[in-house]
């Protein structure tokens, strides 16, 4: 062995490089083998490959669509309908879970014993039951409701029946300002307002109620992380407890709250495919149908994975930007 060779192999840089090249080679070989294997198997079974199927006619109906859709539309459009359903339920879920979670987190710290206990019981009960089970419960509750004629009417403008949840909606067609449209029951039907299907309502309720329990804990920890002196200074200035929470404590708690909140938001998105269990046509449910019809599982799953990856990255990016904005300035 020459001295030169020994010194190159002795260099940690060189060794590091060799190991990295080895790792890449192994990963590429594994990936190549998987692709090859899949292609061979698909050929043997006579299944087409590529994304050409996206332009073919889907041929199946989707129960809820935000954009116009008929079975004669393409698979691409069907998947878009599914994606919009995922986005809507996730976005509304994120907003509602944040509101409910914040209220619960504050309630857990309340000086009122009963309020604090109730919030604790909520958090413990909801966090420890699998989300899938909770979805079945909400779906069961919603579909076991009476028919439209005997719809529950707990609040003005709110109807609960086995056809789903009817809520007031905004009508933008009357000019510049939207007009609040209050639904009413006429005969067997609801007139005006917005009808949410039992599937959508159950999924939204499940995601909201489940995630709110985790957000409550995050909010509570964030509030506890704000030094007591902040509250005392605010009290000594005569601010009310509500003002102190809004103006002094929560803005500072955000620094601690936002990073773990981001992962809860991602969880809402990633839990939304449980929709399939109660028949809400989200992206995963639609792509499942597409895969069953075309057999193109690899492409179908790829589409879903890419979409979820993009969604997650976009959400993380947004939250990171927000976190930088609420960071405290110091020397």
């Amino acid at each position: 062995m020459t001295g030169g060779r020994a010194s190159i192999w002795g260099s940690t840089r060189f060794r590091g490089l060799v190991y990295q090249v080895l790792v890449v080679a192994v990963v590429v070989a594994l990936g190549g083998w998987l692709v090859h294997n899949t292609l061979v198997n698909l050929e043997v079974r006579g299944i087409a490959t590529g994304f050409g199927f996206l332009e073919r006619e889907a041929g199946f109906g989707i129960s809820e669509n935000l954009i116009s859709y008929t079975p004669a539309d393409s698979y691409a459009r069907a998947l878009t309908v599914g994606l919009l359903n995922t986005l809507v339920v996730s976005a509304i879920g994120i907003v509602l879970a944040t509101l409910l979670g914040t209220v619960l987190g504050v309630a857990r710290l309340s000086g009122n014993w009963l309020v604090g206990r109730l919030a604790s019981v909520y958090v413990e009960a909801v966090r420890n039951v699998p989300l899938l089970l909770q979805l079945f419960v909400w779906y069961g509750v919603l579909t076991a409701l009476p028919g439209a004629r005997q719809a529950l009417h707990p609040l003005p403008g709110l109807y609960l029946s086995n056809r789903g949840l009817v809520i007031p909606s905004l009508d933008w067609s009357q000019g510049w300002l939207p007009v609040l449209e209050i639904p009413s029951l006429v005969g067997f039907n609801f007139v005006g307002g917005l009808t949410l299907s039992p599937e959508f309502a159950a999924l939204l309720a499940g995601l909201t109620i489940y995630t709110a329990a985790f957000i409550a804990e995050i909010v509570r920890a964030g509030i506890l992380a704000v030094p007591k002196g902040q509250t005392e200074a605010a009290l000594s200035l005569g601010l009310s407890p509500g003002q102190i929470l809004r103006l002094v404590v929560l803005p500072q708690a955000l620094r601690v709250i936002v990073p773990p909140l981001t992962s809860q938001y991602l969880n809402i998105c990633k839990n939304s495919p449980l929709a399939i269990a109660i028949g809400y046509p989200d992206l995963v449910a639609v792509s499942n149908t597409a895969i069953n019809q075309t057999g193109q599982a690899v492409e179908g799953v790829t589409v879903v994975m890419v979409v979820f990856l993009a969604l997650s990255l976009a959400l993380s990016g947004l939250m990171n930007w927000y976190n930088k904005r609420v960071a405290l300035v110091s020397r």
Partner: peptide, 9 residues
Amino acid sequence: FQSFNLFPH
């Protein structure tokens, strides 16, 4: 207060 307790945000 001893520790100032200014509102840092």
